[in-house]
Amino acid sequence: MSMDIRVEELKDKSLWEPIPESEKMGAEALTAPQVTFWGDVWRRFRKNRLAVIGLVLLVIILLFALVGPLVSPYPYDKQDYNAILEPPNFAHPFGTDYVGRDLFTRVMYGARISLAVGFLAAMVQLVIGVLYGGISGFMGGKVDEIMMRIVDIMYAIPILLIVILLMVVLGPGLVNIFLALGFFYWLGMARIVRSQILTLKEEEFVLAARVLGASTKRLLLRHLIPNAMGPVIVTVTLNIPNAIFTEAFLSYIGLGVSAPMASLGSLASDGVEYIRTAPWLMLFPALTIALIALAFNFVGDGLRDSLDPRLRR
């Protein structure tokens, strides 16, 4: 009979009231504030002090390289024979070089090239690398075999050789370095994406999508690649400083920009000779390369940690 009593109690309308109509839809919502995947990433990223420093540094460098030359009173190729090899001062914060050019302006232009190289490397990786690796991994079998062997073969060609060959054909210039970097920088990415896709395509959500009749294109672009995005972004950010270093190195040995244009590598190379008499010629370009690379590395590290919490130790 106890049951009856309870039912009686329930019938007693004074003891409860129905939830209002407006709240019915969110009946199952969580009480904590809703957090998307990217919001979560950003939260974790913010907690990483080094990553934030890297990001701030990156913004400063971007401003320095993109806006700096517009406000600088000196053109990068203006020679002033009365101000040769001046140490850093108010008029020339980084000093002047052996024909009296303002090093500050030249470093800004050099940073521009470095950033352009970084941007190019990122684009090449994101477009060619991701698609190539995605197709290779998704198709599997013979297609995969052939596509990966092509990557292997290209991996075996030294970039220096390609740049020198390009220089013979096209003459010296920055274009060579851009072409060579574009030619090579998607290889690593293709491999990473392929291995990601290989694991992802065995997952059940892919099977589900397939059962529902999704096309290959839709499978790749809507399901597989977005799920592989974490490692992709990390690889991109960590590869950018590599590309920047490569450009600096190639310019350093004289394969890059032709004078009077300056890249950080060629500036450092010009400065080496003066390391004892005018050390700022070497110091500032080298420091800028280091800072750019450091900033990208910090950000890349931070992204890796926040994109994939499992990787965190």
Binding site: D77, K78, Q79, Y98, V99, A259, P260, D270, E273
Partner: peptide, 13 residues
């Protein structure tokens, strides 16, 4: 050579 480069840059300018 560094020396030739400097002279070249000066003439260029």
């Amino acid at each position: 050579s560094e020396g030739h480069k400097k002279i070249g840059e000066a003439i260029q300018s």
